[in-house]
Design a binder for these strands. Structure first.
Lengths: 339, 339
DNA sequence: TATTGGCACTCAGGGAGTAAGAGTGCTAAC
DNA sequence: GTTAGCACTCTTACTCCCTGAGTGCCAATA
């Protein structure tokens, strides 16, 4: 419907507004961008864009600001992405070296992402997805307590300490461990619940009650993988762009601290490997996020999306750079986890 | 030096300013508090307080605001602390039930504390202090990687995954585990480094290189307990009281996200069990925190301080309530960890 | 000596009025 | 379809002024 030049005008408006933070008018537009036409022509285009709901004037005598819809169109037609700068690549490389610990990797990654984008960055802990059980371990942890360790083949390790009420002999623990491990090893995590049901046929009544005391937390471990954790960094960036929100930052910060809410949102957003999913402003129905944009992509090992990385910021953000940065971090994370 | 009534005036100023957020003048003061004297007398007292550097007038025709020194004196003479309200007690009770997981306990506690105080709350992960090794475990985690688990007698469990480069037989792992466990079990964490030195005399050269590959991360585990972790909640509260800072919130948020800085600060502050340590405004030399107050107390099991809990907020905060809340949470944490 | 009433003085904050400037929409001409 | 021109609309910043809260000081009082 809208002409090619009109779209170029939209793009210019988005770019200028993002960099200057000020409504952009027809005159400044032709000064900065070499359209071959006069300001009057641009004005006509702008009127059209406004009619389409893509831009909007805060007041009569002001320039125009992109609407959520405008950003959306801009992003959808975004073809060339910014490259990371040399120093940014450098930072990535430094990050890549050493670090084996999952927490460490994720922690460094969020911080880097938030610095790269100047936004709030978040990384979802890898979920088990279609992962399999690599091994189950039981370890005595003093008195009546036992630590259950679940190792899955995506490298994630989870543990839980369970109080069994009665003291166990070392041999008993070994026996139970062997039983659990042999039954569950190699099974998909999804199947663990089913498999655990028909265990313990060969055990004494006492032992089987103990076993059931162990299985319950084990299932919770598996399950806690779905309602998993989130790591966030760079909230200070939010305050810096406070003006871009309606001063509603505190509710936004609340929403961000409520990891549960974010996780739900994130998991709703479909983003396969190397694809980016984006919710702009009012596209988010979640309270507190309606004037923010959420940008995520998936990461994970071996072609299988395991979790999401992304940023949260004002709708007025540099989508192009941010998408590039989020992708880069996602690729890096995938590589790290693949190892 | 200053008279009893003058101090009462200071106290009234602090209280009024904290609750109204506005400089308080002599007239409003006698209206709200029943001093038996006239406003002129109060003015004389105020002049005295100002001379002492305890209060300060933002401008000539405004009321007075407490200085950092004023808050300090107020706090030092604070004798009656506010009680927690019934609903607050209720929240604590609810928190007390169930929950075994350390992360869970700490997580709930920070959130509760931040809600109780309307400030940024923080909890330092329990350090090992004088803790002892309860057991050391080695668990194979696929291919060439091994998980090292260190269980200490304060209930803390730490693990690390180490890539050994070569694949190990199950029996070898058991053997190494037994060796490590027998040597280190019961030892104070501080001694681990020394004890680890004279291990492996009975092993083949190949095995002893593997062993040293295991000991290194083990020592790091012990050591990582010193530069330990921090959990923070309620940063949104900061934004809400933005006006109380010089609009410098973003640098403050940065400082808060830099857990390392906070940890250093916290560890400098001496706060034994049930004692509260407080830095008011400029008493903090750390950049970004100079207009904030940091309030911490210790918590831990068996009469031994293990780590700190506290809040960060504007110097204009309700010290009395906050101290009460921080103490209550600390007591709760101590109780939970004692179990 | 401590307290008080009185009074002149100061100054931030809140309108009201004004001028400048940016930007628009419209129309008529190219 | 594009452009120049123009009248019109608002925001923003600035100035001026006024009001009210609050002070400091002084002389009188108990």
């Amino acid at each position: 419907m809208i002409s090619e030049r009109s779209f170029e005008v939209l793009r210019a408006i988005v770019q200028d507004y993002v960099s200057t933070r000020e409504p952009v008018g027809s005159k400044t537009l032709i000064e900065r961008h070499a359209f071959g036409v006069s300001s009057a022509t641009i004005r006509n285009d702008m009127a059209l864009l406004e009619e389409e709901g893509l831009i909007h004037a805060p007041h009569t005598s002001a320039g125009r600001v992109p609407t959520d819809l405008g950003y959306r169109l801009f992003v959808d037609r975004l073809n060339e992405l910014k490259q990371l700068s040399a120093s940014e690549r450098q930072a990535m490389e430094t990050l890549l070296t050493d670090t084996v610990d999952l927490d460490e990797i994720l922690g460094r990654s969020v911080r880097l992402l938030s610095r790269l984008t100047n936004q709030v960055a978040m990384i979802q802990y890898p979920t088990l997805g279609g992962a399999k059980v690599r091994s189950v371990e039981l370890v005595s942890v003093g008195e009546t307590r036992v630590m259950i360790i679940l190792v899955s083949d995506n490298g994630r390790i989870q543990q839980h300490v369970q109080d069994l009420g009665t003291e166990l002999q070392a041999e008993e623990i070994v026996k139970l461990r062997n039983l659990l491990d042999s039954k569950l090893r190699g099974a998909a995590l999804v199947e663990v619940a089913k498999l655990s049901a028909d265990l313990g046929s060969t055990l004494s009544p006492q032992q089987s009650t103990i076993l059931s005391n162990l299985v319950t937390p084990l299932l919770e471990l598996v399950d806690s993988n779905r309602q998993d954790k989130l790591m966030v960094a760079g909230t200070a960036n939010l305050v810096r762009s406070e003006g871009d929100f309606g001063g509603n930052i505190s509710s936004l910060l609340d929403a961000i601290e409520e990891h549960v809410v974010l996780l739900r949102l994130i998991s709703e957003m479909e983003a396969d490997h190397d694809e980016v999913s984006l919710r702009i402003g009012s596209e988010n129905q979640i309270e507190g996020l309606t004037s923010a944009s959420v940008l995520v992509t998936g990461y994970g090992n071996q072609a299988q999306t395991v979790a999401k990385v992304g940023v949260i910021g004002p709708t007025r953000m540099d989508y192009s750079s941010n998408i590039a940065a989020v992708r880069a971090i996602a690729r890096y994370l995938s590589k790290s986890l693949g190892a």
